[in-house]
Each structure stands twice: as C-alpha cells, then as structure tokens.
Amino acid sequence: MIRDITLGQYFPGNGILHRLDPRVKVLMLISVIVLIFCTFNFFALSVVVALVAASVIMSKVPLKLYLKSMKAIIIVILITSLLNLFYGTGEAIAQWWIFKITQAGIRNAVFVAVRIISLVMVSSVLTFTTSPTDLTDALERLMKPLGIFKVKTHEIAMMMTIALRFVPTLLEETDKIMSAQKARGADMESGNLIKRIKALVPILIPLFVSAFRRAYDLAMAMECRCYQGGKGRTRMKQLRMHGRDFAAVAVVAAVLAGVILCNIFL
C-alpha cells in the first residue's frame, strides 16, 4: 500500500545520533555528501564507507528500514552503474557489438554504485534519526543568514513543516480515493500509457479538491492561533550545542582531513 513508503520517515529512538543537535547533523550530512564526491581513489572511498557504515550502526535503526529505502532507487543505481560500465575509455577487457568493458569502466561503475548507496544511506541516517520538525527547525536556523539577501527563511521553513505534517494525511486520502473509485469499477492496472494516465484523473481531481479545502481550513486555524509570520515569534525548543555535538564535528573533520590526504598522497 502507498502508506508503506519509508523513504524519509523518522524512526523514534534515543541513540547518540538521535540526540545530536539537528543543525550539526545537517552540516555533517552536507560535508559527508561533499566528501563522497571528492573521493578519487579506493582508500579515500573506503574511509567514507567506513564513516557511513559507522553512522548506520550508531543510528540504532533496524537495517531492514535502510534496505527498504534502498529498494526505491535500486534501478537508478543499476542504470547509472551499467552506463558507466560501458563508457570507460582504454583497453577493452571484453567486447560485444558496440559495448566494451574496460578496467576504467569497471572502476567507474563500482565508484558510482558505492557513492549512490552511501548517499542514500547517509541521508537516511539523518531522516531516520531526526524528527521532521527538528529538521525544518535546523534548516530554518541554518538558513537565517540568508535573510540578509531577502530570502524568506521563516516562510520556507513553515511551508516545509506543513508539507511534512500533511504528507501522511494526503497519502492516506489517496489510498481512500483510489479504493472508492475502484469500487465504482475504475481500472488502474491495465491498458496503455495514455489510458493509465487518464485513469488517474478520478484520483487526482478529488485529491486536489481535498488538498485545497484542507489548506483553506488550515489557514483559518493558523489565524485562530495568532499566526502572523516569523516576526516576533519565539520557539519552545531552543537548540543548544553539547559536548557530543562538538565531538561529532571533530570526527567528521578528521575524516575530511583523512580523505584529502588519501586523495593527495595515494
């Protein structure tokens, strides 16, 4: 069922990663992503993989959930790896028709696969260990400096909060509307592409209507609760850096240094 999608879902817990300051986690994620794309040899890559693996283990989230979020992009990994496999330059190891496999091709394919897998894993670590509200909170605060460029950081964060809040509600609603139309004989599983797209109309229209009605209600509810934009707004939860946050920053910085050294000297 649609409701079972886990990509980007918080898994409540009390491990060290759960307790880290979300701002630190977001910054760490960004640096690890940069790291992943700055690894040019196997040593550097293995250091990054070790870091990602360590964070997966430390997250104390069942591995099953990670694999589930992996399932959604397995095809992307396969396609990009295959493309890389055949696009290598140099001497061919094996050749068939216009396809040839070279050593560089194999290397690229492995690199790409490992990079994407690490990317998904490490992003999942963040979303599994950080509640959506903490996440938007962290983003709002991290984006604050952008305010001087007239970027409406509070409004962006508010929109994200609301979107996160309503995703499960709308998924459930989609499920319900689909069942209701199926009960009237809607056929969504057969026919060619055009027919299938047409079959979505009875689902999308009610979904949009309901989303607008919800938006209208929500706007009223927010007004009832004195919402007047970001001005003069306080927050119940204050973010404060603790010892563990500094330690985490140090670890990531060390790995960053290690990777740079690997890249230069190996």
Binding site: I177, A180, A183, R184, I203, I205, P206, V209
Partner: peptide, 15 residues
C-alpha cells in the same frame, strides 16, 4: 459492480 460499496464521506470522491 454487483457488490456496491459507498465509502465514508463519499462526496470526497466526486471528480
């Protein structure tokens, strides 16, 4: 078609 089901708040399915 033989077992018709009207869901709760069926007006939400009009399109």
């Amino acid at each position: 078609f033989r077992v018709g089901l009207v869901f709760q708040y069926p007006e939400n399915q009009l399109f």
